[in-house]
Design a protein around this nucleic acid. Sequence first.
DNA 1: CTGTTAGCGCGTTCAA
DNA 2: TTGAACGCGCTAACAG
Lengths: 353, 353
Amino acid sequence: MKSKSYRIKDIAEMAGVSIGTVDRVLHNRGDVSQESMEKVKKVLKEIDYKPNMFAIGLAAKKKYSFVCAIPYYIENDYWYTIATGIEKAAKELQPFNVNIDFVQYKHSDEASYRKVCEELREIKTDAILLAPIFEEITIELTRILDKKKTPYIFIDHNFLDTKALMYIGQNSYMSGYIAGKILMSDYEKDQEIVLFLNNNKDNPAEVQMQRRMEGFVNFLTEQCDKVTIHDVVFNKDKPEEDRISLDRFFQQHPKVKLGVVFNSRAHYIGSYLKESGNTLKSLVGYDLLKKNVELLKSGEIKYLIGQRPALQGYYGVKALCDYVVFKKEVDPIKYMPIDILMKENIDYYFELE
Amino acid sequence: MKSKSYRIKDIAEMAGVSIGTVDRVLHNRGDVSQESMEKVKKVLKEIDYKPNMFAIGLAAKKKYSFVCAIPYYIENDYWYTIATGIEKAAKELQPFNVNIDFVQYKHSDEASYRKVCEELREIKTDAILLAPIFEEITIELTRILDKKKTPYIFIDHNFLDTKALMYIGQNSYMSGYIAGKILMSDYEKDQEIVLFLNNNKDNPAEVQMQRRMEGFVNFLTEQCDKVTIHDVVFNKDKPEEDRISLDRFFQQHPKVKLGVVFNSRAHYIGSYLKESGNTLKSLVGYDLLKKNVELLKSGEIKYLIGQRPALQGYYGVKALCDYVVFKKEVDPIKYMPIDILMKENIDYYFELE
DNA sequence: CTGTTAGCGCGTTCAA
DNA sequence: TTGAACGCGCTAACAG
């Protein structure tokens, strides 16, 4: 049952070399003869060597540096939560001498993103966790990183034509499909539906939103008879205009009883409802921002779909470390669960710990 | 930002004693003069000493033994999943020399439970993870454990009048309430509801089930107009009789379109439906057993409520270790999330890793 | 190219 | 009652 655990000293003996040599092949730092190399590798294959993490941690002298490139955030927003996960991992990995730096860009802003990517090309680091946005700029960057052999992991969004070590994120299409399903479970005949959309909904930074919408629409197409769907575009920078257009919308469309917001700003709509006195039978939103959660509890938002941002950040950093520091294999793709939260289960929800 | 980390050598110097002495007060193994004791404690208070886990792990010679007392299980059932979580924790803690043994009893069987509890009184172990069932027997056991100062954690079910270090489990009442909510979101006028109950539903081993049912019924009472509710009692040991009574039930009650199973045996009903050709618009069940998941995917079960059994086991053992080995405080109560799974999000779900 | 060795911080002797 | 010394498994510097 319990497999004997080997030490590098054992390996050395078995291969008939010294521990120094074993260490050299384990960390491929060269200066090893073909012959020794083979002997050691042979033994390694046989025994499934698992290094003692404590000894590594204790002896570690080498410093590692990881860089996380994500959008700027404000407290309690989506990227903030990702950052908390990153920081939790950072704390755990500190004893292994890995140091984590952030580099941030302005979300949706191509120039800012480009600047960060240029910085990433020059920066000296052992690995990168990147939330990629604009395709061309990203691809260019990855070419350089590939050349420099700097491993990188994508978080939140993926580009397939790259050599990314891993992708961590949600299946946005499916989460949109699910939004459709849970919204429509509250549907009654003759009711109408409204989609609340961003003003910059066509920006590449909003792909998640677009995919969710696809999934949502597909659910309706596949599973529901004809329903009337409206959309309202709102602009988070112009709250007054939004109020007015929402007021008008609800006045003109009294049959609208169900609504969805495809990004984390359901709280804009939720608090509008609260203040205006307009109501929806069901409002579905994304992400457990503090404000969203408050409105979930008070009833304006009926369902929130969660994607474990903190866990995403945590996993991303851990995976970089597994790969770079511990030389482990990592899965190329890690989808996050699609969590369904409502007033009744939100209090028991947690991501980490 | 980064606070300097002290070693016991530093403490020794600061207190003007030797490292041996510091070690003695840290582990209160006595043989320390009042004077030295005070000097060391003073320093400890000032610096918020955090021992280096790696060094502890590496140097550890002391062996720890934990015992987990849970019901017997078969592959892929609920307790099996808890056991996988326990074993995962066991593997992680192996380097700290903690060894984990199982002691098992027959679920719902008082004599078997009593026997295990008696064993637990005698056994020499550093801590216990117990899935408690029968109250009186359990309380008696805890008295003894308290006297022996053996810490214990309850998993799955809790008894308040004990000195349990921690309780890990689900809020069953709320998960039943939620079952009501998601089932009723599919309700349409004139439909009727069926509760599938265990034959031994009054056994103390089925408290979870009873609580869930309370929550469920309360949801209906609070939130719904009068609906017709039936119950069918089924007996997992007599499948033929069950088939017959289910056949009869569905024949007699054609309006029944919604159903709930309050334990993890929704697959009994699901596969009955599949085979008999009877259908329910919505069937809600508990726990992600393999068979339940299959029926969720094929559509006979519409929702499953999950309670992260693997995580429960994992946390339980980790908490014992935090307390016993690392002398950390642990939270007295850890509620598990109430996860809502359906065909569309089940593939992305995971508990650990 | 290879082998040897001095720590890393802590637990545990053992001699004083 | 105290202090010094060794070893846990691994890394990395150094001597050969």
